[in-house]
Design a protein around this nucleic acid. Sequence first.
DNA 1: TATAGTGGTTGACGTAACGTCAAGGTCAAC
DNA 2: GTTGACCTTGACGTTACGTCAACCACTATA
Lengths: 253, 253
Amino acid sequence: MTYSIQQLASLAGVSTRTLRYYDQIKLLPANRNVHNGYREYGEAAVDRLQLIRYFQTFGFELTTIQQLLDQPRAVQTAALATQRAQLAAEREHLTTLLNTLDRTLAARNGGPQMTDSEKFATFKQEQLADNEQAFGVEARQLYGKETVMASQHRFANLSETEYHDMQATEAELFTALKMVATTGDLTSEAARRVYECHRQWLCFTWNNYSQVAHRGLAQMYTHDSRFADYYNQRVGLPNAAATLVAVINQYTA
Amino acid sequence: MTYSIQQLASLAGVSTRTLRYYDQIKLLPANRNVHNGYREYGEAAVDRLQLIRYFQTFGFELTTIQQLLDQPRAVQTAALATQRAQLAAEREHLTTLLNTLDRTLAARNGGPQMTDSEKFATFKQEQLADNEQAFGVEARQLYGKETVMASQHRFANLSETEYHDMQATEAELFTALKMVATTGDLTSEAARRVYECHRQWLCFTWNNYSQVAHRGLAQMYTHDSRFADYYNQRVGLPNAAATLVAVINQYTA
DNA sequence: TATAGTGGTTGACGTAACGTCAAGGTCAAC
DNA sequence: GTTGACCTTGACGTTACGTCAACCACTATA
């Protein structure tokens, strides 16, 4: 029993274009009717197509499937296991996305017509999530779980004006830091402003400031290039982060 | 304060190509330095890019985002809600995929070197899942939950030889059905074979056969075009399904 | 036998969101 | 004057097909 291209297509629930494509990339080569050049598919093709679709449901790419089909079962099983991990990760990602979305929606539905405020709240959510992803593990390691949670809590409960103040403080920090990074003078008034601004900036979210913790944060800055990138980028100088760390170290000595 | 393309890129964690692309499709138009033609971005651009990335994390397409950015908050919120449903559906899909994969992997790791058997088991899983997706709701409605579960259980526990017998029975059914559909003679011996084969085929998975249930199934065949498609396709005649239903109705009268 | 309808064939272009060259202009620094 | 970093505009590649377009094969009917 042989099938025409359309018969196989509707049998397997795919389009004829798909079968032609599979033929073209030699994933599922078709026999040809010598008389008219039509494609013909036998039982083996049906089985192979079924296997292809099977692997496809798990998100394998066609090139991968092509290789997989010629591989021993053990290799296929290993590939499936790898794919499983991949899918599990995707699902987890979706879960966090859904949580974020839910919070956003709740905030949006909270007030009748909150415009800037809701945008603001949304952004805070985002920043929190970003920050958690980027530094959550390290921060918890350095400060302990409770401290980090308290910090997040304070950030989440920042009022809009407080948030703007925090931004302003950071901007002032950048200005001063730019100066110090240019001159390199750690004894200048600007250096003191850098330290003060950074301390104030921290206090927006820290419940109890201590010089030791401040010093620990600077330590963290040196360990993680993302911090350096952030400060260097914002200030526009390649030594901004290093300068900041030096200033903090000096004032918390 | 204006940013160069690379500054904004690393600030926002995207590539310069991305920014050029956004400029090109007018999602995030850049100002130009009249002197040298370089792109320049201001604070508004930073905000807009942030919003773009924010919507993007939720899986919106760029064209959608473009429209969304000019929309009032209520519309955006509605879009987010819709997207939430979408994401939830995706996650559910992933969950069922993972379950299937887990069962497959368990089966593959079950035996030391099961080749055909494991392929067979995998296919059964697939068929079960497919069938469930296609007809689960209707079947449960028609037969009740317990009956369907029992049927699935029996199918899942079919031995390989039983499975092949089931296939053979179906093949015989197709042959006989083709004859009857061609002649249209419901009184023929072939018609009796059609009924018998279909009954036998059902009994592979039904715990207790009854003519009433058989008639109910035929009813379902007429209601759902997928059944018709399946039989017409397999037999190769456009009236195969209708003929089958007629035969069943006659013998279960 | 002409014709209409159905089903087959091979190109070839379009899709989404960029990645990745290639060829060449700009600018600061040495 | 010449690096080297940064910028520009094309233009092609990516995945798994969808969607024409132009043309051939076969069957049924007027």
